[in-house]
């Protein structure tokens, strides 16, 4: 167990290093002079020279990276060119919003996806099964931004039930959470169904039936429990994709989270904002994936010996 945990943590650290290096080197890979980009369009020659000096842009790349990591670790993510203020506090205020939206989406996906999958499995080959699976395929193909716009069209513009954008009350949360969850919801429904179908064919389920247990007890007490393990893992590992999707939903619904911050940062080529945002999102995903993997290995000993 310890060996597995150590290996898995080392892998997560490697990912963090690579991702942070990617985020760091954006500025250097970009065409043009990094100092001029930090200074912005209005910077004079002397200012650019000062920036070069200040940021140590003439040092070897790895030394620059190390210095940057140290600055970031101490909470200094640089200043936004556009807003002219440090990025750190902005991220600190946007992060909880994104986290709340992500958790809400995950809850929606689990609370709706798993029961739908169970229904489809227990009514296998019925029209209900067909409908759930059809919706699931559609859910994985529909572009998030289109779904978002359709919901806005229906619930905000036509019916006027929900606000079309913004943040603050629980009513603002409904549409973004629903849209962000759609892909994961569809996947969970599909997975739950196929796991249930498989488990329901196992010997111990037949035994349970043979000893006269009610079908309901067999399905929910015996089958469901064993079908759930992989489903829960997938739910955890989908967290990354969910955060990726939030980049889109936050932009469409004007939710002031990290995702929208990053998109705006890219549009204005505001590198510190993009770097900070990407770093925070990637770190979060790494931590969640690590947690899920370790938890799974505790629950299912086969993993760590595999």
């Amino acid at each position: 167990m310890l060996e597995y945990a150590a290996r898995r943590i080392a892998q997560a650290l490697l990912t963090v290093v690579v991702v942070s290096f990617l985020a760091f080197s954006m500025l250097h890979l970009a065409p043009g002079d990094p100092a001029a980009m930090i200074g912005g369009e209005l910077a004079t020659e002397t200012e650019i020279a000062m920036i070069r000096e200040l940021y140590g842009l003439d040092d070897p790349l790895l030394i620059q990276y190390w210095n940057w990591v140290q600055r970031v670790a101490s909470g200094d993510l640089g200043s936004s060119h556009r807003a002219g203020r440090p990025v750190g506090p902005d991220i600190a205020s946007a992060y909880p919003i994104s986290l709340r939206l992500a958790s809400a989406s995950m809850v929606v996906a689990i609370v709706m996806g798993i029961p739908l999958g169970i229904l489809a499995a227990t009514h296998r080959d019925s029209s209900l099964d067909l409908a759930v699976m059809g919706l699931s395929v559609a859910g994985m193909s529909v572009p998030l931004f289109w779904l978002a716009l359709l919901l806005i069209l229906l619930f905000a513009l036509q019916l006027g039930w929900l606000p079309s954008s913004g943040w603050g009350t629980w009513r603002h949360l409904i549409m973004p959470a629903l849209v962000t969850s759609s892909g994961t919801l569809a996947l969970l429904a599909r997975m739950t169904r196929s796991m249930m179908v498989e488990v329901l064919l196992e010997d111990y389920v037949r035994t349970a039936r043979a000893k006269g247990l009610a079908e309901r007890v067999v399905q929910y007490k015996h089958a469901l429990r064993n079908a759930m393990l992989p489903v829960v893992t997938v739910a955890g590992l989908r967290f990354g994709a969910l955060l990726g999707g939030m980049v889109i939903t936050e932009t469409i619904f004007a939710v002031p989270g990290i995702g929208r911050m990053v998109v705006q940062g890219v549009s204005f080529r505001d590198f510190p904002v993009v770097q900070g945002g990407v770093l925070v999102i990637a770190l979060t995903i790494c931590m969640v994936n690590l947690g899920v993997d370790l938890l799974y290995s505790v629950l299912d000993p086969r993993i760590r010996h595999g």
């Binding site: 990912t15 991702v19 970009a30 890219v266 999102i281």
Partner: peptide
């Protein structure tokens, strides 16, 4: 394979955004 693992652990859309941010 470690490189592949790292690349796949970043959400697609996020990686795409980083690339667009870099090269315009």
């Amino acid at each position: 394979m470690r490189m592949v693992d790292v690349l796949l652990s970043i959400p697609r859309i996020l990686l795409a955004i980083v690339i667009v941010a870099t090269y315009g």
